[in-house]
Design a binder for these strands. Structure first.
Lengths: 257, 257
DNA sequence: TACTGTATTTCGCTA
DNA sequence: TAGCGAAGTACAGTA
């Protein structure tokens, strides 16, 4: 069966399902009143409350409350889950090494336990990333500046890899830093680091630094200005009127009403 | 009842439960074969597969596969969820404005739908954050350096707020940047920015910059050195042997075997 | 494994 | 609301 569910199970029955599912590679959800203790890179303690706990076959565990996108507690992939019953509580312990981390969830009441057989072969196709912005520029370098000729992407420097490297119409080296959204001071610092490193490679050549992003904050614009760096406004995807609520997208066959 | 669950429901029955739960402020999980389309800050398309979809009453929606801590698709809190049935598929649409974003999940098969009544009043108590590191230093400034006197936390400068600001034994201004874990180049850049800003405030005073963190990468150490910045090794919590598997913690009443 | 940077980052805080 | 920086960030790519 694809889903196995127990409602208000006795702890020992819940335990049996959990152990079976952990052994099987099935995904598990447990909903009930629990406490959570975490110790590792940091430490945390969470008092009693109703939460949804999700255990994935890859060793991920998530503890979700009724709010926020982020789990209140979690363990990343690669952990080992074990279930047990001690002192009238169903416990799930998730551990890993390097770093040494431990998560303990103790249920005093279980409303529901489910185990799911999951199959998912599809990959996510995402557009609008920084990678898309880079491709857009490589397809048409004049978007940055007429005469700009990119010679390398992710070019290594003493300060780390530069998004785009090339030369301008006057053969001066050009360092381009790409951001998919409006940027703050850290992007200006980053570009500064790269330009300084390239400047040591090619002294006296007047290395230019160009930040390409949809927009910059005022303080960042000032920083760029002070340091003789440039800004070009550009987005990962062309002006496609992405958020058009009036026109129906091709694959959107839903109708209101 | 605290949990309401339907197994392999007809779409219209699943729809009824979803609409009721969205109206109620109950949390919902749906497990089944679905496709997902997202459009907003970026765009994505996800082909058919079995996934666990979680809808929270605060407007969060998560689409989880059997792998990774991160949902393959999501929508943050504040969104509006609507369910419908079109062309033989149960659809969940989650929308928000500013930014305009839309997530569509279309189920071709539903294995299980559950609605949960969630109550959670407990707050997470976390230790080991950067804030703890700051408090540790304010309690004993000599951890940074004998003679260091902090005068302000989060002190505003032209480059942004500085973690700790104060003076050394020789009355020189000191800028301290705190990190709870091993740091890379961006932390050095950050400190550089702050020191430059404070240096403009107090010219000719020999403003010092100190990075306080557990450790730094080699490249970062070189950057600090070049710029005349200093490093002090310190962790958010004292050496408490946090990851001690042999000794039982006070609140750990679980026994192996 | 360690280092580096991106992210539909999310989140909290402050002006 | 926008700006700014932290996070138990997670995650991918590379050396």
């Amino acid at each position: 069966m694809s889903v196995m569910t127990l409602h208000r199970p006795a702890h020992r029955d819940a335990l049996a399902l959990l152990e079976s599912a952990f052994g099987d590679g099935r995904m598990v959800t447990v909903f009930g009143r629990c406490r959570v203790e975490y110790d590792g890179r940091a430490s945390s303690s969470l008092g009693p409350g109703d939460r949804l706990v999700v255990c994935k076959p890859d060793g991920t565990i998530l503890v979700h409350t009724d709010e926020q996108r982020e789990p209140v507690n979690w363990q990343p992939p690669g952990c080992t889950h074990r279930a047990s019953v001690r002192e009238g509580r169903l416990r799930i312990r998730s551990e890993r090494t390097s770093p040494e981390e431990r998560l303990d969830v103790a249920f005093e009441r279980i409303e529901q336990v489910s185990a799911y057989e999951v199959t998912d072969r599809s990959d996510l196709a995402l557009t609008g990333s920084e990678e898309d912005l880079r491709q857009r520029i490589l397809d048409d370098p004049s978007l940055v500046e007429v005469g700009f000729e990119p010679t390398a992407a992710e070019r290594e420097t003493a300060a780390g890899p530069v998004d785009l490297f090339g030369s301008d119409a006057e053969e001066r080296p050009v360092v381009v830093e790409l951001k998919r959204r409006r940027v703050g001071p850290s992007a200006a610092s980053q570009l500064t680091r790269y330009v300084a490193a390239v400047d040591e490679e090619f002294p006296e050549t007047g290395v230019r630094g160009i930040l390409v992003a949809p927009s910059v904050t005022d303080r960042t614009a000032a920083m760029l200005d002070e340091r003789g760096l440039e800004f070009v406004a550009l987005e990962p995807v062309g002006d496609e009127d992405t958020a058009d609520a009036s026109g129906a997208s091709p694959d959107d066959d839903a109708e209101p009403g």
